Amino acid sequence: MTRTILHIAQSSEAGVARVVTDLAAGQCTQGDRVVVACPTAGTLARTAARRGAQVVRWDAVRSPGPALPREVAGVRRIVDGVRPDVVHLHSAKAGLAGRLAIRGRLPTVYQPHAWSFDGAPAALRTAAVRWERAGARWAHQVVCVSEGERAHGAAAGIRCRYAVVRNGVDLDWCGPPEASAREAARHRLDVRVPGPLAVCVARLCRQKGQDVLLDAWAEVEARIPQARLVLVGAGPDRSLLAARASPAVGFAGAVVDPRDWYLAADLVVLASRWEAGMALAPLEAMACSRPVVVTDVPGAREFLPPRHLPFAVVPLGHPGAFAAAVARLLADPATGRALGEEAQAHIRRHHDVRRVVERMYSVYDDARRVWSGPVGAADQ
Rank of each mutant, 00 (worst) to 15 (best):
A60Y: 01
S63E: 14
R70I: 08
E71S: 05
E71K: 02
A73V: 14
G74Y: 04
V75I: 08
R76N: 06
R76C: 10
R77G: 10
I78Y: 02
D80N: 09
P84H: 04
P84A: 06
D85Q: 12
D85Y: 06
V86W: 03
V86H: 05
V86K: 00
S91G: 09
A92N: 05
K93F: 09
K93A: 08
A94I: 09
A94V: 09
A97W: 07
L100G: 00
A101N: 01
R103I: 02
R105K: 12
L106Q: 00
P107D: 00
T108W: 00
V109I: 08
P112K: 00
P112W: 01
H113Q: 01
W115M: 01
F117G: 00
R125D: 05
R125G: 03
A128W: 07
V129K: 05
R130W: 15
W131Y: 13
E132T: 08
E132G: 10
R137F: 13
W138R: 05
A139T: 06
C144V: 12
S146M: 05
E149Q: 10
R150C: 07
A151D: 13
G153N: 05
G153P: 04
G153D: 02
A155E: 13
A155Q: 13
A156I: 09
I158T: 03
I158W: 02
R159N: 14
R161H: 15
A163L: 12
R166M: 13
G168H: 07
G168Y: 06
V169F: 06
V169R: 01
D170M: 05
L171D: 03
D172F: 14
G175L: 07
G175A: 07
A179S: 13
S180Q: 15
S180D: 15
A181D: 03
R182G: 06
E183N: 12
A185T: 07
A185G: 04
R186V: 07
H187D: 14
H187C: 15
H187R: 15
H187F: 15
